[in-house]
Amino acid sequence: MMENILPFLIVGISVGAVYALSGVGLVILHRASGVVNFAYGALGGLSAMLCWQIIDLDYPDWLGWITGIAAATLLSWGYGRFIAPTLSHQDRIVRAMATLGFALMIMGLGQWYWGDAPRRLVLPTDADGIDYNGQRLLSYTRLLALTIAAVATGFMLWLLAKTSLGLKFRALQSNRNLSAILGVRIKRIDSYAWLISGVFAGITGLFLGNIVRLNPTVLTFMVIPALAAALVGRLTSLMWTVLGGITIGVIESLANLTPAARFGSATAFVVAIMALIWQQRKGITLSRDNSHLE
């Protein structure tokens, strides 16, 4: 029994790690700037497609990776620096919906340029891996994803807890206006958050392009499992986000063993819906913005 489950478990953890990594990128941005970035998947998709394009043109692999990640980072930063501020006075919901517009733009460009042709993004780490009982248990790509997820999460935890940038992130999270009065340069700190989030988007895009499917539309909507992971962490807790991502990955993978295998890809959504409802169980009858009652 264990023999059968183990490979699925390991694969699940490694896919979950990529979800967790995406989730962490979303959470960091949300904590600092209060924006839920629906364009996160589209940025990752762009990164993966560009990377494929460059490798396809026979340039060295590393150039592809760097270009992909750099493009995602630059676009994310550009949005955060130039477009997000024009919406800063609006509700959270409007700011989130605006990133939906941004996502559509990037996705549309990707669909137009690359279309739906089947492609594969090959990473050099795909070729080899850890074997178990003569079966490939874990390719190095997945191992790398797992490592990067662990390292990146650790790094972000350190950044938030120990550095002055992290302190400013936390200040913005608790009260933006107050922070501005106290001298935190909101636009600049925001754009740092977008920058970091963009790097995360680029890296996860490469992994998802390799593991899931190299297609601009599919990758754009990979933001939904990432959001699911982030929602488990209430869009604020990094540790819960990681846990949520890995849980989703594992359940998704183990679902392959059950008769409901075909519904497996709905795991992320179901987990997140349950998490959302659980978090809201106490609820409030009035809206949160009941400042007029004070």
């Binding site: 477009i83 609006q90 409007v94 605006a98 939906l100 517009g101 941004f102 559509l104 733009m105 549309g108």
Partner: peptide
Amino acid sequence: ANVFFGFATLVSLI
């Protein structure tokens, strides 16, 4: 068209 839709959404929200 998606590019246009995305752009138009951004403009409308802003």
